[in-house]
């Protein structure tokens, strides 16, 4: 695990993991707003034409970003500039296999390292297909963050965890981003099950929109991921979204950070 992840998850409270799509709105300003509002880990979405696992909000954000001409080079520039401004906040790139691997996994991993990216989440490379990206990232010193879902059974979990770094992202609903929310009891059970299988911090996401939900999850998990709710704010306020992003981040961060004490 990179030092930044270790520090973020060693705090005496659960982490707010905030997702926004790169190139949608004023990304640099929004990233600063997330940090200022109290986000502990940043996930920066790499836009893709075919975001198969995303709901309407993030799909639209991907298309808005691409329509503005956002390239992979732009994404890495956004990441590198973020790293300069915020030396301590962990930064994760999240996206799809094709943009990540089109120039070769080694190229991508090296760019991540150069830009100061701590971790990568690739939605559509399950452990079965991870012969290239995961190894390349590990060589470059970047964590590959794996996803576990309600359908990940006990037989598969060891494969999912093999090679996983940073934190484990528990996708709490069998579905796409931004729509349904999971019953809290199912989250409690899943987190307990995952904690029994790994020492990695567990962050829970998909469908989390309100401070109340976030607080409930923060009682049991090490991190709470919020994405579509930020994207909605950016969709509504466009290039002037930063103050709104910061205010919303603060309500989430307060709820999550106050939810309980987690033994470090």
């Amino acid at each position: 695990m990179t030092n930044r992840f270790a520090a973020a998850f060693a705090k005496p409270h659960a982490a707010l993991v905030a997702f926004i799509t790169g190139g949608d709105g004023d990304t640099a300003a929004n990233l600063d707003a997330l940090v200022a509002g109290g986000a502990d880990v940043i996930e920066l979405g790499m836009p893709f034409t075919d975001p198969m696992a995303d709901g309407p909000a993030i799909q639209a954000a991907n298309l808005r970003s691409l329509a503005k001409g956002t390239t992979t080079a732009d994404l890495f520039a956004i990441a590198a500039a973020f790293r300069n401004r915020h030396p301590d906040t962990p930064l994760v790139l999240m996206g799809y296999a094709n943009p990540m691997t089109i120039r070769g996994a080694d190229w991508f991993a090296a760019e991540c390292a150069k830009a100061g990216v701590d971790g990568v989440i690739c939605v559509d490379i399950p452990s079965e297909e991870d012969g290239e990206l995961g190894p390349a990232l590990r060589v470059a010193g970047v964590d590959l963050i794996r996803l576990a879902t309600p359908t990940t059974d006990a037989a598969r979990l060891p494969d999912v965890l093999n090679g996983a770094g940073g934190f484990l992202y528990y996708v709490s609903v069998a579905g796409i981003t931004g729509l349904q929310q999971a019953a809290q009891t199912s989250i409690d059970e899943a987190v307990a099950r995952l904690k029994a299988a790994t020492d990695l911090p567990i962050a829970v996401g998909f469908g989390v929109r309100t401070p109340e939900q976030a607080a409930a999850i923060a009682k049991v998990a090490d991190g709470v991921v919020v994405g579509s709710a930020f994207i909605d704010i950016i969709a509504q306020h466009g290039d002037a979204a930063a103050p709104y992003v910061e205010a919303f981040t603060r309500t989430l961060a307060d709820a999550i950070h106050g939810a309980k004490e987690i033994a470090a």
Binding site: M52, A53, A97, V123, D124, I125, P126, E128, E129, R146, L147, A148, T149, P150, T151, T152, D153, R156, V160, V171, A174, G175
Partner: peptide, 20 residues
């Protein structure tokens, strides 16, 4: 057995779909 034709094919899906 992993669904590959040479370097092609495979199962590049989200973890949610994988067990299914």
């Amino acid at each position: 057995e992993r669904g590959h034709f040479g370097q092609f094919g495979g199962r590049y899906v989200a973890e949610t779909l994988m067990p299914l």
